[in-house]
Design a protein around this nucleic acid. Structure first.
Lengths: 171, 171
DNA sequence: ATCGTTGCAAACGTTTTGCATAAGG
DNA sequence: CCTTATGCAAAACGTTTGCAACGAT
C-alpha cells in the first residue's frame, strides 16, 4: 500500500515562478490580441492580493462600490474571471451552486476538504490523486485535462463546537 | 506502488440489497412522518426505471406533460429529488451549473470521468479514492461523509471524431 | 480609425418560495 | 380532522447577453 505517498500539509508552499501574475497576464493579453485595461489590472491586483478561495460576489464586495474610483461592474468581473482562468492564473470549481476560484499560477496542485457546517475549504496534497487520474485515464483512453477531488464532511472545529453546544444544552 | 489497487471497470455491477428502492423509500417516509403520495411513487418509478445519470430537466422531460395522468409539477420534482437524496436512494453532484443525480441505493461507490466535449459521464471504481479520503480525513481530524472525484477531459470517441474531422477538413 | 471593452439593463437557466387548495393518515 | 403535499405563480439566485458608448492600440 502506498499510504506514505499521501502527503498532507497546510498551508501549502508557493511554487517558484519566473513571472509575476501581472506579467503573465500581460503576455496572455498580447498573445490573444486583447487589451490591458484599468479594470483588468484592478481585478488582477485584488485577486492576487490574498490567497483565500473566493466567489464572484466576495470579489465584488471587496471592490469599490459604484460611483467610486476603481469600480468594476458585475458583468466585467465575471468576464475577467473567465479570462484569468483562461490565462492559467486561476482555477475554478463549483460548490453549492456557485463558482469558486483560487490561485493556480505559482501554486501547487492540490485537492480539498469541504466542511458543510462552516463552509471552509481546506487544502491537501496527495500524489495519489494524480496517479489515479493518470491510471484511469489510460485505461479508458481518456484525455484527462484536470480533476476535482472534494471530500465533504465536518471539520474538527465544527465537530468540537457541536459537542460543546450539546454539553451546554444539558446544563 | 499500489497500481493494482485501482480497478477500473464498466458497466458496474449492482450491489445486492435486501429491500427494493420503493420499500426503502416507504420506510424513510414512515420514519419521518411523511406521506406516500402518488407523485412520489411515480417519480420513484421513473427514477429507478433506468440507470443513467440525469438532471431535473431530463426527469421532467420523460414525465407526462401538464394535463395528462401522472403529471408532476416542477417544484414537486425538485422537492422529491431532495427527499430521494435524503433517503439514501440517490446521490447528487454538480456539473456545469446544475445538479446531476444517479442511483446510490443498490449501487457500488464509484467516481467519474467527464467528457467536456460530449458531456458524457463515465463511471470508474478505485479503492484508492476511499483510502485517500480516509487517510486525509484522519490527518485533519475531519469527519468525511462523502467525496466527489471527477476527472475532466475528452473521451476516446470525441478524440477520434475530432481527428477524423480534421482529416476531412484537409481534403 | 479601428476594434476590443465597458456598464447598463435586461435576460437567462436552474432552483426555491409563499400560498391556497388538495389529499394522505 | 389534522397535517403534510401539491400546483401555481412568482421570486430568487448566480451568471450571461445585447447594445451603445468608451477607450486602448
Amino acid at each position: 500500500m502506498s499510504s506514505e505517498n499521501t502527503t498532507v500539509g497546510q498551508p501549502l508552499e508557493a511554487v517558484p515562478v519566473s513571472m509575476t501574475p501581472l506579467q503573465r497576464f500581460e503576455e496572455y493579453l498580447q498573445s490573444k490580441g486583447l487589451r490591458n485595461t484599468e479594470q483588468r489590472r484592478h481585478l488582477l491586483e485584488q485577486v492576487f492580493n490574498r490567497h483565500e478561495h473566493f466567489d464572484a460576489d466576495q470579489l465584488i464586495d471587496q471592490l469599490p462600490s459604484k460611483g467610486n474610483a476603481n469600480y468594476v461592474s458585475r458583468p466585467t468581473v465575471y468576464r475577467t474571471l473567465r479570462e484569468f482562468v483562461d490565462a492559467g492564473l486561476l482555477q475554478c470549481f463549483e460548490l453549492d451552486g456557485r463558482s469558486v476560484y483560487e490561485h493556480d499560477y505559482g501554486y501547487p496542485q492540490h485537492d480539498h476538504l469541504y466542511c458543510t457546517k462552516c463552509r471552509k475549504l481546506i487544502e491537501f496534497t496527495s500524489e495519489d490523486t494524480i496517479r489515479i487520474r493518470d491510471e484511469v485515464a489510460k485505461q479508458f483512453r481518456f484525455r484527462a485535462k484536470e480533476h476535482r477531488f472534494i471530500i465533504h464532511g465536518v471539520c474538527d472545529e465544527c465537530t468540537k463546537r457541536r459537542a460543546r453546544d450539546r454539553r451546554q444544552d444539558r446544563v
